[in-house]
């Protein structure tokens, strides 16, 4: 009996993975279209990312040893694993374990895996890119943590499913209304997490020949694209669950995610790329201040439990 139930879960998990990948690539395609439109040109068809991915998987590629392969696979596998705990609209594959910090640390495992693979290639550009990515991570993870902890304090629970449940019932009940500063901070942090324009020093094509992806050929670049798009789906999904009150059905969930991604793309299209230490210190100034201010407000409103 357990095996049957396990197989169902496996199929559902596989479905969610494919779904997330599809929506992630779709968002990527639409994002490129929007970017083109902003620059007053037609831009590729929004299915372009699918074509790119398929072409990458059909192309020969170069590997630098088993650590390179293990690293790249370990780059996107934890992202897929983290998906299983994310409440997507009404449905969560494993609701009992959907703890927020666990998802954050699973994403960090994806970074660790990707870093190992990319650095195993031995190209200094990838090393510089990875060191920039890690420095950037210290930047945006701190306000992100401040916001997470204020949400913990506010909703007195670590389960994403319960956080979403608490926000049910109308717009006024969403956390974005109750914790506006938190939403602002996490929106800026989201810009960093997705590695979009002001904070994409890690993959700067001109300075460090696209940073970590310098040695990634056909299928390895494909794995990188999968990791990016699933990560895109995951991060926007988390922010939707935390602040925009989840969604009654899947399409509204996707719509809400796209709203967030749209903001990110707009900022991406306009702002130039910052230098690495400017972006880390930026993250420690305004967003962190907003996050901590939000947490203090929550504490003052009686969030403290001193159990």
């Amino acid at each position: 009996m357990v095996i049957v139930e396990f197989l169902i879960k496996l199929a559902q998990g596989f479905g969610i993975g494919a779904l997330a990948l599809a929506t992630g690539l779709l968002f990527g395609g639409i994002g490129r279209k929007i970017m083109a439109r902003i620059q007053r040109r037609y831009g590729p068809p929004f299915t372009q990312n699918y074509i790119d991915l398929f072409k990458l998987f059909s192309k020969g590629s170069v590997s630098h040893g088993w650590a390179f392969d293990l690293g790249l696979v370990a780059g996107f596998a934890p992202m897929l694993a983290a998906l299983m705990f994310l409440p997507i609209g009404p449905f969560t594959l494993l609701p009992s374990d959907s703890s927020l910090i666990m998802i954050v640390y699973l994403m960090m495992m994806a970074y660790l895996g990707m870093a190992m693979g990319v650095l195993a290639s031995g190209n200094p550009n990838s090393a510089i890119g990875m060191s920039r990515a890690l420095m950037l991570m210290t930047g945006y993870e701190v306000p992100f943590a401040a916001v997470i902890f204020s949400v913990y304090l506010f909703s007195k629970t670590g389960y994403l499913t319960q956080i979403v449940a608490q926000q049910a019932g109308g717009f006024m009940n969403w956390n974005i209304v109750k914790m506006p500063l938190g939403f602002l901070a996490i929106e800026i942090a989201l810009q960093g997490m997705l590695g979009e324009k002001p904070f994409d020093q890690a993959i700067a094509p001109a300075e460090i020949a696209s940073g970590p992806m310098v040695e990634l050929g056909g299928k390895y670049l494909g794995f990188g694209m999968i990791q990016h798009s699933v990560g895109l789906f995951l991060e926007t999904g988390i922010v939707v669950d935390l602040f925009l009150g989840g969604a009654p059905n899947f399409w509204i969930f996707i719509a809400k995610q796209f709203v967030l991604y749209f903001i990110v793309i707009l900022v991406d299209a306009i702002l130039p790329r910052l230098r690495i230490h400017e972006s880390t210190s930026f993250f420690w100034k305004l967003p962190l201040f907003l996050g901590i201010l939000q947490a203090v407000i929550v504490i003052i409103q009686g969030g403290v439990l001193n159990v």
Binding site: F57, G60, S61, V62, S63, H64, D69, G218
Partner: peptide, 8 residues
């Protein structure tokens, strides 16, 4: 299953 790679 995807395209083969070459060790370098």
């Amino acid at each position: 299953i995807v395209a083969k790679h070459k060790k370098v």
